[in-house]
Design a protein around this nucleic acid. Structure first.
Length: 216
DNA sequence: CGGTCGATTAAT
DNA sequence: TTAATCGACCGC
């Protein structure tokens, strides 16, 4: 694949990394299998000790080892005993932060047919891409899971909303507009709020522009 | 050492 | 609206 996203890319502020991942490509190669690809259309940011929806807010535990490590690695954990969640670790080390990949769009592959499976949800996409707990901790630049630079197509806009399923974490965390998605994209996770918060959308665009200005 | 609870999904 | 399903975590 072309040059994967660098460690430097992931070791920036999580709220810059998250929107920048929209349009990028996730690439998974499992032993003896063809590469599986998808285009990122929805993500969520989880960041630090003050974000009570962030698993790491209370401190490091064995399960969160990768999450507390340096940015640029895949953090995979199981939720509800069933679903693998794919996160890209950001910032760090010793600062819990990352981006949850919530939905992928099928894209044509140069070397074969596109992945047809439904990837409109964090648990669905890991199943479709063959991502398991065993990939936890792998290096996003050189390991079996990588991200390739991408971008928005003409007319595509980034929108934000509150994160999904974090009401348990309390009002403050639940109110943060840290879900980023490509507005109106048909591959967004289903049954979820898709109405963008306009003020937050504006903020996200500003963050994005500043990031591009500092592009390496 | 046991009770509780998910960054979800699919079926009722 | 709820079952599935299990490991991590917390509290006793």
């Amino acid at each position: 694949m072309p040059r994967p996203l660098s460690h430097r890319f992931f070791r920036r502020h999580t709220l810059q990394v998250a929107p920048d991942l929209l349009g990028c490509e996730v690439w998974v190669r499992r032993p003896g299998e063809r590469v599986r690809r998808g285009r990122i259309v929805e993500v969520e940011a989880y960041r630090g000790f003050d974000d009570r929806a962030c698993h790491g807010w209370r401190g490091e535990t064995p399960r969160l080892r990768t999450f507390f490590g340096p940015g640029g690695h895949a953090f995979v954990y199981i939720t509800y005993g069933i679903h693998a969640m794919l996160n890209f670790v950001t910032e760090g080390p010793d600062y819990p932060s990352g981006v949850l990949i919530r939905a992928l769009e099928s894209i044509p592959a140069a070397d074969g047919p596109p992945l047809e499976a439904d990837m409109r949800g964090p648990g669905l996409l890991t199943r479709a891409m063959g991502i398991t707990r065993g990939l936890d901790g792998s290096d996003l630049r050189s390991g079996p899971v990588r991200a390739r630079p991408g971008g928005l197509r003409p007319g595509e806009r980034i929108a934000t909303s509150t994160r999904v399923g974090v009401e348990y974490a309390g009002r403050e965390a639940a109110a943060l507009p840290w879900r980023f998605f490509i507005a109106g994209n048909p591959s967004l996770s289903r049954g979820r709020p898709t109405n963008p918060d306009r003020a937050a959308e504006f903020l996200a665009q500003r963050i994005r522009r500043r990031t591009e200005a500092n592009h390496d």
